[in-house]
Nucleic acid binder design. Structure first.
Length: 287
DNA sequence: CATGAGCGC
């Protein structure tokens, strides 16, 4: 393909220099009206010492008359994510806002449609198919940029690794020739070691109470998805009034994910209420 | 505060 030093996404993620290895950003001052530009950059010498390099250059005089509003904006102080960046950096930031679409059919009937979509994407040569392996969102961000990174930092596997039993339901891989269905009974990785199939058949169901009245399935999906694959979300609505009864059930594919969700989210402030998250009593265990 | 829907061949 490319001849020489070609940029690859993998390289960016692999160069794990850590916080200490990061040098202060290059700063560019000017050019002023005389065409003088000052570049202050930091470099690392062979022996590891950081050196500050200041370069003063005279650039070609500005030919084009700039919009005065633009000129004024350039002298404004930077803030937020733009701090420490300069005009040559890519200042476009991936939005972390989650937008969920209303589902028009019950969950059980989605498999078919999902497959069609997969075929569609595959026929497009899956040119821009980005799937975050932390939160599962498609086309939004790379795993390393996941807004949920912190929240999920202490899961049982490394971020970037595929969590056990991840290929369920809508998350099924759409890559060419990669689609492989794993039945629910086979999900969850390590099968026979007793850990995942202890205590009979439970569906890793957790109960969430003290929800605000307007909490809906989408809100819970957003809140719980970072911990692992969710197989079902049920929000208890009153049949007559249509209002939320203030509790819901979330089923995780993997029990360990449910454990972490309980530990992290029980007592979590949500919608000005304190959530209560605990194991649900399986329906079958009640009279 | 609170423990889910359906039961069809």
């Amino acid at each position: 393909m490319g001849n020489r030093r070609e940029f690859r996404w993998g390289d960016a993620a692999d160069e794990d220099e850590g916080i200490e290895g990061v040098l202060p950003p290059t700063q560019v001052i000017g050019p002023d009206e005389k065409g003088v530009k000052i570049i202050i950059e930091w470099r690392k010498r062979e022996d590891g010492a950081k050196v500050k390099v200041t370069t003063t250059v005279r650039v070609k005089k500005q030919v084009k008359k700039l919009n005065p509003a633009v000129v004024r904006r350039r002298s404004l102080k930077k803030f937020g994510d733009a701090l420490g960046q300069n005009a040559s950096d890519n200042l476009t930031v991936v939005s972390t806002e989650e937008i969920f679409l209303e589902r028009t059919r019950p969950a059980g009937q989605q498999g078919q449609k999902q497959e069609e979509k997969g075929a569609e994407l595959a026929s497009l040569g899956n040119a821009s198919l980005i799937v975050c392996r932390t939160c599962g969102k498609k086309g939004e961000h790379w795993t390393s940029k996941c807004p949920f990174k912190e929240l999920v930092a202490n899961r049982g596997f490394n971020i970037g690794e595929r969590p056990p039993g991840e290929e369920d339901l809508g998350t099924a891989s759409v890559g060419p020739g990669k689609a492989s269905y794993v039945p629910p009974s086979m999900r969850g990785g390590k099968q026979g070691d007793g850990e995942s199939m202890r205590k009979g058949r439970d569906d890793n169901s957790i109960r969430v109470t003290n929800l605000s009245e307007d909490t809906r399935e989408q809100d819970l999906q957003e809140l719980f998805r970072p911990f692992g694959s969710i197989s079902r979300i049920y929000v208890a609505f009153d049949r007559d009034t249509g209002l939320s009864r203030g509790f819901a059930f979330i089923n995780f594919v993997n029990r360990e994910d449910a454990v972490r969700a309980i530990n992290k989210l029980d007592g979590y402030g949500y919608d000005n209420l304190i959530l209560r998250v605990e194991w649900a009593t399986p329906r079958t265990d009640r009279a």
